[in-house]
Each structure stands twice: as C-alpha cells, then as structure tokens.
Design a protein around this nucleic acid. Structure first.
Length: 566
RNA sequence: UGUCCUGUGGUGUAAUUGGCAACACGUCUGACUCUGGAUCAGAAGAGUCCAGGUUCGAGCCCUGGCGGGACAACCA
C-alpha cells in the first residue's frame, strides 16, 4: 500500500480564500514567507460569538502557518472605551485557548508615532485643518451618488496647517472647533476618499494616556499604521471595511511606511435567532431584559462560558462554519450541535428530575436501600462508575407518565411496564390524585428478577426512565434557558423593533428539582448530562454550597418532542 | 440613479484552477440501544441567479442583464 505523504508545512484543514491569498504571498515571497496577524478589538464592550470567529481565524492562521498573532486594543476613542472591557476581553480570549504571549499592544502606545505621520502628511500638502462644523462637513461630503464639494479651508498653507494642528494638540480649541483631514478627492465615488477625518479634538482623558492628548486619531488613520508598526502581514477584518482598503493603502503609501500589510476582508458571523450588534446587546443589558453581559441567553463569550459551553466547542464551530466573503446566516442549531457533540464525549451522566412526581413501589420493602451501580460516561470508559441509592419511594419526571398515552408513548402509563434506569422493571398499578384531580403519587410494583445486570434481566420493555430516590434526593434550582428571540431574524423586520421578538419563555426557573446525591459536591462550572434531559452546568454566580443552581446548556436531541410537534 | 463586494441543495462551506458538483448541519428511512441520547447503515434534496458567447467540454473564462450586501460618524 502506498502511504499518502502529508507535507508537514501544509495543514489538513480545508482551504479558504484567505489561506489561498497567503499561499500566493508565500509563493511570491511578498512577506518573506511570514504570517503575522492580529486581533484588534476596541475595548468598548464584551466580546461575542462573532468576535470568537475572528479570534479563531486570526490566531488559527498564525498557528497553522507557524506565525504569530498579536492582541491589540484599538483604543483611539476615549469617550467610548473603558478598562473594564480590556480586562474582560483578555479573559475571554485566554479562555478560548489562545495566547498572544508577550504581544499585548495598544494603539494608544503609538500616539506619538501617529502624530509624526500626521505632520508628514501636512508637510506634503496631503492633510489640512478644516474649520467647518461637523454638520457642514457632512453637507459638503455629498452622497453616494453625488460628488461632494471642497471645504473653503482646504487650501490653507502648510505653515498655517502646521500652526493650527499644533494648537489643536496643545488644547487651545474646544471639541469640534477644528479637525485634521486628509486631502484626497471630494468627488471620489468612494465616500471614504472624500477628505476623510484624520484627527479630531477630544478634551477627554484616555484610560491609558490620561490627559496627555486632546487630539485622537481616527480608525482609518490609526489602524494601518498600527499594523505596519507591528509588522502585521495580513490584516484580516470584516466586509464593511472593504471600501476602506483604498484609504488604508493611501495612508501607508503617502507616508512611505517601511512595511505595508495586506488588508483582507471576510464575512462576519451572523446567527439565526440572535442579535449580534454591540449597541443592541448593550440595550438588552441596560434595559434589564437580560441579567447582565454574561446572562446565559446572551451571545457573548462570557455568557456561553457561564451557560456551560466549552472553548473546544466554540472553536470547532468556528472551524465548521468556514470563512468566505459572502454574507449569510448560520443556523444556531449548528452551535448547539457543536456543544452537544463535545459534551457528549466529556460530560458525566447523572440522574436528575426537573419536574418531579412521587412514585411508590408498593411491593418493595420499607427501610431498604440498595446501592446500584451506574456508568458515568458510556463514551469514556475512564470516567468509571458510581453508586446510586434506590428505595421504595422515588421521584420521576412528570412528563414520563401519562394516564392517556398516545400511540408510540414508550414511557409509563396505567397497566404498562417501564424500566427504571440501572434498577428494575416496574408496572404502574394505580394513580393517586388530590381533590382537584392532580396526580399526587403513582403506585407501581416491581419485578425483583429484573434488576440491572441480573442474568434474567433482559426482558424487553419499550422505555427506560430516570428517577431519584426520594429520601436521598438533593434539592436544586434548575434554570431552563431557551433562545432569547422567537424570530429567526429579530432585526429583519423594518416595521418592528427587535425587542418585540423577545421569547417570553427564554428562561424558566425550576425550584424543586430532585437530583441524585452524587451531585452534592458539584462545583461551580462543573458540567453534566442529566440523562434524557440535556447538558447542565453549575452556575458560577447564583449557586451556593447546599443550594445549587444549574444552568441548562442545551437539551439533548429529542426525537420524541419532534414527533409530537408534527 | 455612483463605487466596491457577492450570488453553488433548506443552511454553511468545497470542487486539485476548464473534466461526471463534494462535505458538514438539517430532513427522512432502517438497525442497535437499560438515555426516544450516542452509534451504525441508507435515502431524498442543487445541475451552480438569468441570457448569450468561447470550448470536444464551463460552477470556474468572456459579454450583457438580474438579485443581495456595504458606503453619506469628528465610531470602530
């Protein structure tokens, strides 16, 4: 047999258009076969799953091509930014499993250098101080289909521009009084080239540079230079910056920057049933529609972490959805698939009853407790086994019993048999109700010959249900989370606000759940599969010793529920 | 009535650069099962936005349409 040889420098991951561009660069030697990327968040909010895609892309590319990836905060707008965010962002990236090593940078570290570049432009006659108001500038800019017109201040002398810019820097003006603009082309069909703003006056202190500056550079000016200074080869960003690329290149060319990176744009992640814009997420937080940035219903990385998602699942998801330039929407079901897939392999199984109803085995002796053996994870032998107590009185799931069952109902109903997982086959003999007709207890008999593992325990029954011994059960609160929106595209309806699509049932709190006793010492963040229910984790905020709170990460695939929906 | 980007099963990505459209999720069968989970076996589903052209041969190339997206912050 001929062995397939895999080139060590070539990964087995699928190619995307960015890797193809990199391959071409490597072939032509444009960047000396180096790959150096960066993830450049603005510290003005929490990272969400869309950022996760970008993080996986940038760090992933670096890893794959044996290059490096920097973390750089794009902190050029002090009025919106905050140190709280620079902390959370680092936490989230580390949690995802990426390492920027010593390369933690801030655009604000380069303010001095940026200022020098601005002077170069002014001296070349490529930038000027404009004294129009913001409103006037907008009017002069024209529209996408009409050319703009030049500012009356456009032809100030270099000397005057230098002097004015100096005064801007020295804090001699109020916000908005003047602005430094690049002198390009007011009639360019690309709006970004119509004399874009370069430096604006902000008499605001910056979270890192304090009061040293009262002028701050704009994104387009600062970003390319930051990339250049750091030796970035491939500056990967989202599609909306496509029209900015000519400007990115213009700045670098005009100051004759020694290193000129390649900007590459890809389609940002859109998820169905989800809103992703920072503004809208902030609104959900501010209006207390959710319980903070890390509310498990949010699409933020911190929320997914709290909800029980694993870094691996998010990275797999990012790899699976791929990278392209076409805008599309990914089905949230894919994210849910990714976390089920991972948790299936690593989460220990456990029995927990979320909506309990009492079940009494009338022919089982009082005061007897059996210790039954249960498998922790059928997908992982090394997870071992544990003991579960069994006794006369149990709790089972309300939904596992029906007085009047439909066809194909494999669970318990009067006169029918079912297996209690890891225990016996039981038969429903009687149903005890209160005066209002609510089921209080279900009475069953058990067959002692059918204990799990016994030689003649192989009798076939249609269903197996989970249970918890009543006297041994520990009580817990369980939070059942569902999608935050009940519309596939909450922002797609122009006539309705996205808040009208909030799913009123996105959180259901169950307070009298009964769990098997092994869960007594579960710690915050621990993840389990509640058999036949879903994956759950111990909440990191509300769970207290002796008063545990579990979050539902995701349900199990449920073909029974699917059948019922038809 | 501009510029740039983009159109491939329901969804998302591929197609060794011109050679029978593949993979994943989803959907549907069936098997297995002490989780209606997982697993296994299989199926349906696109002829690649449209119309021309080049070619023995086009999802890939050319021409012209049509659809979708982005751009008018002193945000990033």
């Amino acid at each position: 047999m001929e062995e397939k040889k895999v080139n060590e420098n070539e990964s087995n991951l699928p190619k995307n258009f960015i890797k193809e561009i990199i391959d071409e660069h490597n072939k032509s030697g444009r960047f000396n076969n180096k790959v150096h990327t960066r993830f450049p968040p603005e510290p003005n909010g929490y990272l969400h799953i869309g950022h996760a895609k970008s993080i996986c892309l940038n760090f992933g590319l670096a890893e794959e091509y044996k290059g490096k990836c920097n973390l750089r905060f794009d902190d050029t707008n002090p009025v919106k930014e905050d140190v709280e965010y620079v902390e959370s962002i680092q936490t989230d990236i580390r949690w995802l499993g990426f390492d920027w090593e010593k390369r933690l940078y801030f655009a604000s570290d380069y303010f001095e250098q940026f200022y020098e570049y601005a002077l170069v432009l002014i001296r070349k006659g490529k930038a000027y101080v404009d004294s129009l108001s913001a409103d006037e500038i907008r009017e002069y800019r024209g529209t996408p289909t009409e050319p703009g017109k030049e500012s009356p201040y456009r032809n100030r002398s270099v000397e005057e521009n230098l002097e004015l810019f100096e005064k801007m820097k020295n804090g001699e003006f109020k916000d908005g009084e003047h602005i430094l603009r690049a002198k390009i082309d007011m009639s360019s069909p690309n709006m970004n080239l119509r004399d874009p703003a370069v430096y604006r006056i902000r008499n605001t202190s910056h979270h890192r540079t304090g009061d040293k500056w009262c002028i701050y550079p704009m994104y387009d000016f600062a970003h390319g230079f930051s990339d250049s200074i750091e030796g970035i080869t491939h500056s990967v960003c989202t599609l909306e910056f496509e029209n900015h690329r000519p400007l990115y290149d213009w700045f670098l060319d005009e100051v004759e920057a020694p290193h000129h990176p390649q900007q590459i744009e890809f389609a940002r992640l859109n998820l169905s049933f989800t809103v992703m814009s920072k503004r809208k997420l902030l609104q959900l937080v501010n209006e207390n529609i959710v319980d903070g940035w890390d509310d498990p219903r949010m699409p933020t990385i911190s929320a997914y972490r709290r909800r029980g998602y694993t870094p691996e699942s998010i990275r797999n998801f990012a790899e699976e959805v791929g990278v392209a330039k076409r805008n599309g929407v990914i089905d949230v079901g894919r994210l849910e698939y990714a976390i089920r897939d991972h948790l299936n392999k690593i989460a220990n199984r456990v029995m927990a009853v979320i909506n309990p109803v009492k079940l009494v085995i009338i022919n089982y002796p009082e005061n007897v407790v059996e210790e039954l053996e249960a498998i922790n994870n059928p997908e992982d032998e090394t997870a071992g086994k544990r003991k579960i107590p069994f006794s006369k009185e149990l709790f089972i799931e309300q939904t596992d019993f029906m007085e009047d069952p439909p066809r194909k109902f494999f669970r318990l109903s009067p006169g029918k048999e079912v297996r209690l997982r890891y225990a016996y086959i039981i038969k429903c003999e009687d149903v005890i109700k209160d005066d209002d007709g609510n089921i209080k207890e279900i009475h069953c008999t058990y067959d002692p010959e059918t204990k799990s593992g016994m030689s003649n325990s192989n009798r076939k029954v249609k269903g197996t249900i989970h249970w918890v011994s009543a006297q041994h059960a520990i009580e817990a609160e369980v939070r059942l989370y569902d999608r935050l929106f009940n519309s596939e595209d909450p922002t797609g309806d122009k006539k309705k606000d996205f808040l009208e699509f909030i799913n009123p049932d996105s959180l259901e709190i169950k307070t009298d759940c009964k769990l098997e006793p092994s869960l007594a010492d579960a710690k915050a963040g621990d993840k389990f599969q509640f058999e036949r229910n879903g994956y759950f984790c111990v909440d990191t905020r509300y769970s207290k010793p002796g008063k545990p709170v579990f979050n539902r990460t995701v349900t199990l695939r449920d073909t029974w529920a699917k059948m019922q929906n038809k």
